[in-house]
Amino acid sequence: MIEKLADYVNNNHALVRQGRFINYSILVGVGETDFIIRIDGGRVTGVRHRQLNIDSGRFAIRAPTEIWEEFWRPMPKRGHHDLFSMMAAGLAQIDGDLLPFMQNLQYFKDLLGALRPASIGN
């Protein structure tokens, strides 16, 4: 599912504008699979499986597959509806350099939430 992220993000002009200063990769772990997501000017320009152990991103957000699946449902259960809520509930974790994450917090919440049908908050 996450492979299609560019389709959902790049046509969302408000979201792209919100992330216009972002030019780096992040890592998203879906279960045992790590994805490197490249962002340029707020647009997703690449989503690929992590090929090398040395591949990484500025920060990594990881959750079990079933947690992401619930997060991406049209109306997620409580605790699964937001990145911070998932962390509060112990369902997800973030590692790495948190500064770029915090500088663009709502962007990253909405970036990953963009895979949800009729994204919450739009």
């Binding site: 509806h81 937001d82 915090m102 917090l105």
Partner: peptide, 14 residues
């Protein structure tokens, strides 16, 4: 912006 980002998930999706 970070304050709003911190609490945005505190609003119900409904």
């Amino acid at each position: 912006e970070v304050a709003a980002g911190f609490v945005s998930g505190q609003i119900a999706p409904q």
